[in-house]
Amino acid sequence: MTNKIVKKEELVNFIGTKVEPTEWYEVTQERINEFAHCTGDNYFMHVDPEKAKKTDMGGTIAHGLLTLGLTPYIMDHFPVPEHMPHGFNYGYDKIRFLAPVHTGKRVRIHGEVKDAIWKDEHNCKFITALTVEIEGEEKPALYCEWILYYETQA
């Protein structure tokens, strides 16, 4: 899927629009180990399957920040203004880690356009609400609001 390019004046018309969820993504032990290596977060619940198996989790789980780090997978599902040479990650609000993602589980991301706030005629804060769903589980892994900064020309 690719972004829907819209006239910048029309971006506000998408407020309240839910976008198609991403494809399912499997959270593997290899991916968790790579994330642990990159961040230095080698807590046993993430990287030691044998030790983690003896806990109430029953095995390793993904880092919450790894789950949050998957959110850009949904980026190409959102509309973007035409003549936009740059889009930036502006930040996240209301991040809540609601349920652990066990190793081997698949997740996908649902999104909704919350707001499009134009600072001036070329700069917009584009606010989305994201939920990371865990396949086969009622409770989602994560909820957050992701703020993107759109810079346009012309």
Rank of each mutant, 00 (worst) to 15 (best):
T152W: 07
Q29E: 03
G111L: 03
G59W: 02
E137L: 12
V6N: 09
E151Q: 15
E26R: 14
G136L: 04
I95V: 15
A141L: 06
K139P: 07
V19M: 08
K105T: 12
L130Q: 13
K53F: 07
Y143V: 13
E26M: 10
L148Q: 14
V132N: 06
T152P: 11
I109C: 04
V113L: 04
H63W: 01
P81W: 03
K4S: 13
L65F: 15
H110W: 13
W24D: 01
H110G: 15
E30K: 11
Y73K: 14
T22M: 00
A154T: 15
G91Q: 01
I127W: 07
D93W: 05
A36W: 04
E121R: 15
A52Y: 03
C38V: 13
I127H: 07
T71L: 12
P79A: 05
I74P: 05
V47F: 04
K8W: 08
H46W: 01
N3V: 02
I95Q: 09
A99F: 12
G16K: 03
K94N: 14
H102D: 08
G16L: 06
G136F: 00
T28P: 08
R108P: 09
W24Q: 05
W146S: 09
L148A: 14
K7E: 15
E26Q: 15
D48Q: 00
M84R: 12
E112V: 02
G58L: 06
N13I: 02
V132C: 10
E34D: 14
F97E: 05
P72H: 01
P49K: 01
N13S: 14
H77D: 02
E145D: 09
W146V: 04
N3G: 08
L142T: 05
G104Q: 06
G16A: 09
T71N: 13
P140Y: 00
R31I: 13
E112N: 09
E133N: 08
F97Q: 08
H46I: 00
Y25S: 09
E34G: 09
V101P: 09
R96A: 09
V19K: 03
M1A: 13
R106H: 11
V47E: 03
Y92A: 06
K4C: 13
F78C: 00
I74A: 02
K119P: 10
I134Q: 04
Y143W: 12
Y43G: 14
E112C: 12
I109T: 00
E145W: 00
G69K: 00
H77F: 11
Q153P: 12
K54V: 03
E135D: 12
F126Q: 03
E50L: 12
M1I: 11
N13M: 07
M84L: 10
H77C: 07
V27T: 01
I15P: 08
Y149A: 13
I61A: 03
Y143S: 13
I127Q: 10
L130C: 05
T103D: 07
W146N: 11
R106T: 05
A141E: 03
C38T: 11
A62G: 03
P140K: 03
G59N: 10
E145S: 03
E23A: 14
K7W: 13
M57L: 15
P79F: 02
A154L: 15
K54R: 12
G40A: 02
M84V: 08
I32G: 08
A141K: 02
Y25V: 12
D41F: 02
T55G: 04
D48T: 02
D120Q: 01
K105P: 11
T152M: 01
T28Y: 05
